[in-house]
Each structure stands twice: as C-alpha cells, then as structure tokens.
Design a protein around this nucleic acid. Sequence first.
DNA 1: AATCAGTTCAACCGCCCATAT
DNA 2: AATATGGGCGGTTGAACTGAT
Length: 275
Amino acid sequence: MGRRPCCPKEINKGAWSREEDETLSKYVAIHGEGKWQKVAQNAGLKRCGKSCRQRWLNYLKPGIKRGDISMDEEDMIIRLHRLLGNRWALIAKRLPGRTDNEIKNYWNTNLSKKLQKHGTAALSVSSVEHKRDEEEKIKQVHVAPEAPRPRRVSAVEYSKIVENEGCGGNRCSPTTPSPSNKVEGSSDEASFSDFLIDIDQSQLLIGDDSNSKVPQMEEEHNNNNNKEVGLSNSPSSSSPSDHCHHLLAEKFDPLETLLDVELKRMASFLGLEND
DNA sequence: AATCAGTTCAACCGCCCATAT
DNA sequence: AATATGGGCGGTTGAACTGAT
C-alpha cells in the first residue's frame, strides 16, 4: 500500500497563529469538516491537512472545553482508562467537550505520576474521592500543593508499571484475561473491582472499531471459558455473548451500549444519576 | 536577575484502516 | 485485486512556561 507524503513541501509547522486559526475556523464554518487536504489548500493555509484537522478537533471546534478537568471527569478518565487502556479517543467520547489529546496529556502529566509513585491504588475510587475533598478545600484544579510535581513517564516506563499493576500496557489486548486487571492485596483496588463487577474487558472491547469482529470474537468467546464473567447484572442476559447478540439484533454499537451500562453504574456510584 | 531543571501541552509523526478508484 | 487517498488514532517531541537555586 503506497503512502503518499503526508504534507506538501512548503508548509508551516509549529504553533498556530491567530490568523491561521481564524482562517481555518471561517473555512470550516462555511464548508464544514472533512476533506482536510482540501481545507488546507482551499483556505490558503500552508498547513498539512492533518494539522488542520487536529487543530480544529482539538482546539477550534465549538464546544471544546479547555483545562479545569473536574474531579468527576478525572474519576471518569481513571475508570475508563482501566476499562479501555490507552484508547484515548474512546475515553474522550465519553467526556463531552474533551479531546483525546487533552485526556492523553492529562493522564501523562497528572495521573500517571500516581501510578509511578503509588501504583494503581493511587487511582482508586477512594483516593480520588479523598483528593476531591482536599481539592474542594483548596480550589485548585490540578495537583494538590502537597503532592509531588507531576512528571512525564515514557511509554516504556508506563508499560512496565501497568504490567505490574494490571491492564497490560498500551492497549488492553482483547485476549488479555480479565483477572490480570486486578491487583492482588490492595484494598483500594478491591473497591474498584467491586465497582467493576467483574466486567470482562474482552467483551467490552469487542465492538470497538469494527462490528464485523463481533460474531467471530463471540464464537471464540463461546469456545473459551465464558462462565467467568460478563455483565451478569443484566438479568435478561444468560451470558455475555447472548447479551451482545441481543445488542447486535437491535443494531446498537456493542461497545457504546456496554459502556453506557458501565457509565450508569459509575454515575450511580458517584451520585450523578442524570448523566 | 540570571540560570538551570522540571513540567506542560500543542503539535507532529507514523501506523493502521476504510473507502475510492 | 491492487493501489491511492483520507482520516483516525496513539506515541512522542520540543517550545514555552514555571519554580528552585
């Protein structure tokens, strides 16, 4: 498969100027999103199409929230990251106004440091709630003053940490057995596990980006030990695969729907019923 | 005030997949 | 069927910023 060079020869790189932002915003307002290569050309921007797309989606698009990630959002990020791994785009979809890039940055700068220092226990529900209490007193958005300053961790570093802690690295492989996502002997982790009610990540990941994978994976799942777990609190589902069949029959995106179920639990747990 | 080190985050890079030709 | 193209995504980089000395 040939790959054309992403960008024309003469392009601007680096930070976007206000003029460029305005040009892009005006163009997209008139012509809509998509065809980013043409956007770059037709709008007269000396920018790569991808760069235009990224600038629009991460910064200029109306409704984008910037900064001030709330404790609830942080909690959501932590939980979703536990469920989905480094699938920032999926996580971002569950946080209106937040972009994958922002969440990724927030994770790398604010949350991964906790992994680095305390392991996953630092990211448990109770610690987040404790932090919420503290931060409401201090009214600071990011890091409590007494907390160590954030530091970036490399992917390799992070993978090692997570490997030890649970979800195995950059992506939670669909074949990764769900028990690996638990840390033994951690009470905080136990509370989180309770919250998860033994959701099988392989089920959650089925419908990620290709519906076509679902039947095949379900078949595999059926061949394996499917007694283990699933959305067992769904009384009408005798098994996770039944549940997925049901969802498919109704033309739902399985992941979306499963996530909705999960997020309702989160909301219930957080006392935020009206998601 | 100057310098240095650490942190943040916008932007880039390259891989992958879906779709068009 | 093979190739070209567009777009999505996660990982990484580096300039700007901030705080410590």
